[in-house]
């Protein structure tokens, strides 16, 4: 089963994303920070269909995780969706240019999260 990885320092947010991913019929992986995320991706990259990256995390932020993934010849193919706040909006253009396929600003409505994840997975197209 293909899986979605949520990278977020908020356990509650990871749980909400996990429920949404389950609704869409995907497996779920989680990481609480960027360093942990890179470890999880290295171990599971063949089954990861999407990474959902929170921008604001301690240690290594979402932009840095994104640039590391996109610099890796194997991992760069994994689609990445960014979770941001309104304040990060200007930097989102950079993230899309750096290879993120989608983004969603917090706070968001649950329906929007479901549709955005489906969109990032290429479902329906």
């Amino acid at each position: 089963m293909k899986k979605v990885l949520s990278v977020d320092d908020s356990g509650v947010m990871r749980r909400i994303i996990g429920r949404t991913v389950e609704v869409l019929g995907y497996g779920f992986l989680e990481a609480a920070n960027g360093v942990e995320a890179l470890e999880v991706i290295a171990r599971n990259h063949e089954e990861i269909a999407l990474v959902i990256l929170d921008v604001n995390m301690p240690e290594m932020n979402g932009f840095e995780v994104l640039s590391r993934l996109k610099a890796d010849p194997v991992l760069k193919a994994i689609p990445v969706m960014m979770l941001t706040t309104e304040a990060d909006r200007p930097r989102i253009i950079q993230a899309i240019q750096a290879g993120a396929v989608n983004y969603l600003c917090k706070p968001f409505q649950a329906d929007d999260l479901t549709v955005k994840i489906a969109e990032s997975l290429g479902e329906g197209f």
Binding site: L24, K116, A118, G124
Partner: peptide, 8 residues
């Protein structure tokens, strides 16, 4: 209009 909304 959204293929992803239709998928869901």
């Amino acid at each position: 209009i959204s293929p992803s909304a239709l998928f869901v």
